[in-house]
Design a protein around this nucleic acid. Structure first.
Lengths: 127, 127
DNA sequence: ATATTATATTCCTATTAGGGAATATGTCAA
DNA sequence: TTGACATATTCCCTAATAGGAATATAATAT
């Protein structure tokens, strides 16, 4: 079934490095039109347009016409889900890290114990 | 040329929803062995093992053996690049949003000016 | 009108993803 | 040993990716 469509999932949309570069450039306020992106990214124009299409489809960018150019604008809000997801690991790589490791080892010991007594299935989820 | 390999790029590794679920479960300290993941995710065991392999390859998880089980541990540090990338949009979706929009319009005006003088084209105002 | 510039789309293709099924490997128990 | 369990790997399949080349569409200039 292949991967989730890049055109329907933000996580997939930003999985492509070029598209992240585009997002970066747009975030800085540079490169509002396609030609400039082409120049900076040193990619063929069709490639850039195609990436922009993906970004448009997931709603990460919006366009408005300015003469024969298309000015692209970043819609940062669409990155929220990624932010939120990554956010809840925040604590894990700060001081909590040590604590987590400890928990892990404890759990490991628990499991071992459980296995010794109840071989096979008997791992209920604690909560 | 297809996409970047899920096995070499963190962004691709976490693009797959199931893998994110696995990461979530591991982060909480639940589901340290494969069977438990299988049960919670309601996925066939080979599928889970395959996802775990991807996560292992990018370094997001590590395994250690505990009897016939494999205990998986999350290596949160590998999420740092994602965190860092998303981080620098932080300001954009708070109060800075308005400011950014303004900047955008200014840039548009700049572009118009540059076009008038240089590459022989213009596209004034916007919209 | 035609030419030129800016951008988007289509077609083609090699590569890959991830599910399913079957099988292999590894570990423990009787 | 055999057998049950836990996990990993392999093979096959279909869908979808992203690049390249060519072309289409749109706006502007002359």
């Amino acid at each position: 079934m292949a991967r989730a469509a890049t055109t329907s999932d933000i996580f997939n949309a930003i999985a492509e490095p070029r598209r992240r570069e585009i997002v970066d450039l747009l975030a800085r306020g540079y490169c509002r039109d396609v030609s400039e992106l082409v120049r900076k990214l040193k990619l063929p124009q069709p490639a850039v347009s195609k990436h922009l299409r993906v970004l448009r489809t997931v709603g990460l960018v919006t366009v408005h016409k300015a003469g024969q150019r298309r000015l692209y604008e970043l819609n940062v809000d669409e990155l929220k889900p990624v932010h939120d997801w990554i956010q809840h690991f925040e604590q894990l790589w700060t001081d909590h890290l040590a604590g987590i490791k400890e928990t892990a080892e404890t759990t490991a010991r628990d499991l071992a114990a459980r296995n010794r007594s109840a071989p096979g299935h008997q791992h209920d989820s604690k909560e």
